[in-house]
């Protein structure tokens, strides 16, 4: 089997790239996608620890994190669509109001 520390290292690299994209982009949807990338990196770390220790709790945490990520994407996109309908933009620089 693959050494679990390599999987954790891949998680760190993906986390760094996701963090860079979160700071780098103005489009809110791309920022949301980069947050998904960071959540996936955290999941990789959970899986690495689970296969290193032989403990199944890491897999349970990963399943919970995936479900929470799905909920977060639904809420986030609902907020973005609401923002788009009131301000006609989803640029994070231009959007400055939460309601009319």
């Amino acid at each position: 089997m693959i050494d679990p520390s390599w999987i954790a290292a891949l998680g760190v690299i993906l986390f760094g790239i996701g963090l860079l994209g979160t700071f780098y982009h103005k489009n809110a949807i791309v920022v949301l996608m980069c947050i998904e990338l960071m959540l996936n990196a955290a999941n990789l770390n959970f899986v690495a620890a689970a296969s290193h220790y032989g403990d199944v709790s890491g897999w349970v945490f990963t399943a919970i994190a995936i479900a929470i990520a799905a909920a977060e994407v639904a809420i986030g996109l609902a907020i973005l669509l609401s923002m788009y309908s009131t301000q006609q933009t989803i640029s994070l620089d231009a959007a400055s109001k939460l309601r009319n």
Binding site: M1, D3, P4, S5, A8, A9, G11, V12, N45, A49, A50, S51, H52, Y53, G54, D55, V56, W59
Partner: peptide
């Protein structure tokens, strides 16, 4: 930090 963490020193127990 992650690659050289002491948690990897123990024996790999295998995946559940």
């Amino acid at each position: 930090e992650v690659m050289e963490h002491p948690m990897w020193d123990s024996e790999v127990a295998g995946a559940p």
